Amino acid sequence: MSTNRIPGARPRPGVVRTRLESFLGVVELAGLVVIGLATTFAMAEEGWKVAGMGKVSITDLLLMFLYLEVLAMVGRYLKLGQLPVRFPLYIAMVSLARDLILRFNESTEFHLLALCGGVVMLACGVLILRYGQYRFPSPDDGENGAVE
């Protein structure tokens, strides 16, 4: 089979698909690098702020924990090429808890109840996901349906 192309001929779908997948892979990697660098910069900035103030509050710790979770999520995706749905749920729970602590004195009862309800709903979602992963393991979950 000749590799010479006929002028005006369209490329084969397999070649286009391979090039597109390659391009998307590069864009995905670049996006992950940008997210990782931005998160690292934000965490360093928060660390300098805490060091400058000379005291650490629970909201500062929760914010740094959020940054660590984002970095762990990026690292896992780079390492394994997959991302459990639980990671964003954990990040959302910590974010709601941080908002609850930050705005406790100035929030209405409805706002506080909504935040607490959101945390409970996210926690239930994590429990359902973990139970489903344990009860109905996929081949990617490892032996005995072990959940990470």
Rank of each mutant, 00 (worst) to 15 (best):
S22G: 10
E106M: 07
L96H: 03
V70G: 00
L66N: 09
R19F: 15
A30N: 06
L102F: 14
V120E: 01
L96Q: 05
P139T: 09
F136E: 07
L63F: 02
T18C: 10
A114M: 09
S2G: 13
L29E: 11
L100N: 01
M121Y: 03
M1A: 12
A97K: 03
N144S: 14
R103L: 13
M121T: 13
L61C: 06
A51R: 14
I128P: 00
G8C: 04
L102W: 10
G36N: 02
D141G: 02
V34I: 09
E109I: 12
A42S: 05
K55S: 08
A51M: 10
A123R: 04
R130E: 11
Y90P: 04
E28P: 07
L20T: 15
L102N: 15
D140Y: 12
A9Y: 05
G14M: 11
P84R: 01
A97H: 03
Q133N: 04
Y67W: 06
M93P: 02
F110S: 15
S138A: 15
M73P: 00
M73G: 01
D99V: 04
G52T: 09
R103H: 13
M93D: 03
S2R: 12
M93N: 06
P137N: 03
A44R: 06
S22P: 09
V34F: 07
M43T: 04
L100E: 01
Q133C: 08
L61W: 03
M121D: 03
S138D: 15
V15I: 05
I128E: 11
E109L: 10
